[in-house]
Simulated assay, not measured.
Amino acid sequence: MVKIPAFEVEQWMDAYENTPGVLNIAETCAASISVSQLCEFHSAGPAPPSIIDFSKPMTYGAIRGSDGLRRNIAALYPDGGSDAGGVTQEDIIVTQGAIAANHLVFYTLVGPGGHVVCVFPTYQQLYTIPETLGAEVSLWKLRVEDHYVPDVGELEKLIKSNTKMIVINNPNNPTGATTPKAVLAEIIEVARRHDIIVFSDEVYRPLFHGLAESEIPPSVLSLGYQKAIVTSSMSKAWALAGIRVGWAASRDKGIIEQLAVARDYTTISVSQLDDQVARFALGADVRPALLARNIALARTNLALLEKFIQDHPDTCSWVKPTAGTTAFVRFSTKDGQPVDDEAFCKDVLDKTKVMFLPGGRCFGHGHAFQGYVRIGYVSETHVLQKALSNLSRYVAENLN
Rank of each mutant, 00 (worst) to 15 (best):
E213S: 14
Q11N: 10
G21W: 05
A237G: 07
T315K: 09
S36V: 12
V261G: 06
S55V: 06
L349S: 06
A323V: 04
P130C: 11
I243T: 03
D311G: 03
A284M: 15
G97P: 00
R299G: 12
I255T: 01
E397G: 09
S138I: 15
A262N: 14
F54R: 14
S269C: 08
H194Q: 13
V277M: 04
H312G: 01
L388F: 06
K253W: 01
Q96I: 09
K160W: 09
L155I: 07
D83P: 00
R330H: 13
A249E: 03
E342W: 08
V198G: 00
G111P: 01
E186G: 03
C362Y: 02
L399V: 06
V395M: 12
S389V: 12
S379G: 07
M234K: 03
A260V: 05
Y127T: 01
A241R: 12
I255L: 11
L133N: 03
K346V: 15
F54Q: 12
T322W: 03
S222Y: 03
L273P: 05
I4T: 14
A15L: 14
G176E: 02
V152H: 02
A387Q: 08
V144W: 09
T122A: 07
D79A: 14
V220K: 04
A289K: 15
L109I: 02
E154M: 12
N24K: 13
V9N: 02
Q337W: 05
P206C: 11
P174C: 06
H382M: 13
A30W: 00
T231V: 09
R70K: 15
W238A: 07
P78L: 07
V354G: 06
R64I: 00
